[in-house]
Design a binder for these strands. Structure first.
Length: 121
DNA sequence: CATATGACGACAA
DNA sequence: ATTGTCGCCATAT
């Protein structure tokens, strides 16, 4: 068994769970936070293989361009759109305003628990 | 080991 | 703004 793989996905899920309601993050951003530079595709892979019964707010993960990763009109696309709308995340013309909704972990943790941000593992 | 694939991203036309 | 290419990286065949 490849343990490191599960470890990686675990970090990815954890990072996503840290996204506060009403905010979104790009795949690349999550990968970076999870300690996987340029691992955007791995985030997508991890989400595609989410364990059953998970409680991961995957709908807060969108592309860096501000668009939802699914094909418009698909069930997943509609579900994600609905969940985001419910969190007051506006989707104008199929795009989300990253400048406005992008999660900023540095600032967030700075205001929440100063100096604890550099204290991991 | 060689290719193909994908819930990505950056960049050039 | 839209589309195409190429780079990335773990998996699947």
């Amino acid at each position: 068994m490849k343990v490191s793989t599960e470890k990686r996905n675990e970090r990815i899920r954890a990072a996503i769970c840290d996204i506060p309601e009403g905010s979104v993050a790009s795949y690349g951003q999550i990968a970076d936070i999870a300690g996987i530079p340029r691992g955007a595709r791995q985030v997508g892979y991890a989400l595609r293989h989410l364990p059953s019964g998970h409680s991961v707010p995957w709908h807060r993960v969108i592309q860096a361009s501000g668009k939802i990763a699914f094909k418009a009109g698909s069930d997943a696309f509609n579900l994600q759109s609905k969940r985001l709308a419910k969190e007051d995340v506006a989707i104008l013309n199929g795009r989300i305003d990253m400048k406005k909704y992008r999660w900023q972990p540095d600032l967030d943790e700075f205001l929440w628990k100063p100096s604890a941000a550099w204290d991991e593992d």
